[in-house]
């Protein structure tokens, strides 16, 4: 993230000019994930937006510590820059003495959700959830908020079961919400929100017909948390999607990223066997203060 995105314009210049920057190591936080080791003198590989949400979170705060936005995982420099601009707009709203708190909250929600529509197609394409994160979402015994098409999700989830992709526990739960005639129990669909963003959905469907892209997921989750003080922000719930183990496998690559040695491969194999990847905790705990009911909570599995 630091070498591929943060240190590259346009984000780098924006950070230098308009932000006071800081960081903290979260290795002892309960929501922190696992990763391969990356040294300053190792190679770096870019990846898709929102990858590794448990391992890095980038907050944009007003000077008093109010959360304007938060990006989970890796983000490309040009996409990060768009979000820095949004944070700047939201900071002006937060500091406006002529707006009431409820007015500010309403504008916050609108701006977060509407910003999804402004994302360029390249950003949407680069925000597709990766295969291992999608598989983790399929394993959940409810329809998570990361799903854009519940019917297709259930069809593909059961397809995975037939292919022995998932465990028996999920099999039982999936059967409980799919009727014998293969129609879906509508009560299960209440776990998802109705999405009014039809135009965006048409574009997004080209990228991923089952799941929302990560750029939509984080904006929706931010919209559920208007102007929250940093110390009250529920980071664990916010980053809850996919697996908590993210490794781009640079340790198996040579100085230019294209080498492969048997010695490193064997080491990699043992590391993978020893590091199972448990599911991330279920996304939950969202409370909408402004009466908006876009989101619903889901029980932990």
């Amino acid at each position: 993230m630091r070498a591929v995105s943060l240190s590259v314009d346009p984000a780098f210049s924006d950070l230098k000019d308009n932000f006071i920057c800081g960081y903290t190591d979260i290795k002892h936080k309960w929501y922190c994930g696992k990763s391969g080791k990356h040294e300053v003198d190792s190679i770096a590989v870019d990846t898709s937006n929102g990858a590794g949400p448990h391992n890095i979170q980038m907050f944009m705060l007003s000077a008093d510590g109010t959360v304007l936005s938060c990006l989970p995982g890796y983000w490309r420099s040009q996409d990060l820059n768009l979000e820095l601009k949004l944070a700047s707009d939201l900071n002006k709203i937060w500091l406006d003495p002529n707006l009431s708190q409820s007015q500010k909250d309403k504008i916050f929600v609108q701006k977060q959700l509407n910003h999804i529509l402004d994302h360029p197609m390249s950003m949407i394409q680069n925000s597709r959830m990766q295969g291992f994160d999608r598989n983790a979402e399929f394993k959940k015994n409810y329809i998570p908020d990361t799903v854009s098409n519940p019917q297709l999700f259930l069809e593909q989830a059961t397809g995975h079961i037939n292919n022995n992709f998932h465990n028996a526990a999920f099999n039982n739960n999936a059967n409980a919400i799919i009727n014998t005639d293969n129609s879906v129990d509508s009560s299960s669909l209440r776990l998802t929100r109705l999405n009014p963003v039809t135009l965006y959905r048409q574009r997004q469907k080209q990228v991923d017909p089952v799941f929302k892209t990560t750029d939509e997921i984080f904006h929706e989750r931010m919209a559920a948390n208007p102007f929250i003080p940093f110390d009250q922000f529920d980071t664990g719930s916010f980053v809850s999607y996919g697996t908590d183990h993210y490794d781009k496998g640079e340790s198996k690559m040579g100085p230019n990223g294209n080498k492969f040695t048997a010695k490193k491969a064997v080491g990699g194999i043992f590391r993978q066997v020893l590091n199972q990847t448990p599911l991330a905790p279920a996304y939950s705990l969202y409370q909408f203060g402004s009466g908006n009911n876009h989101f619903v909570s889901a029980e932990s599995n």
Partner: peptide, 17 residues
């Protein structure tokens, strides 16, 4: 009169991550 960019990360910004 600036905003804050606060990174929570696994590791150190200038060291191993």
């Amino acid at each position: 009169n600036k905003m804050i960019f606060w990174v929570q990360m696994l590791g150190d910004i200038d060291g191993g991550t």
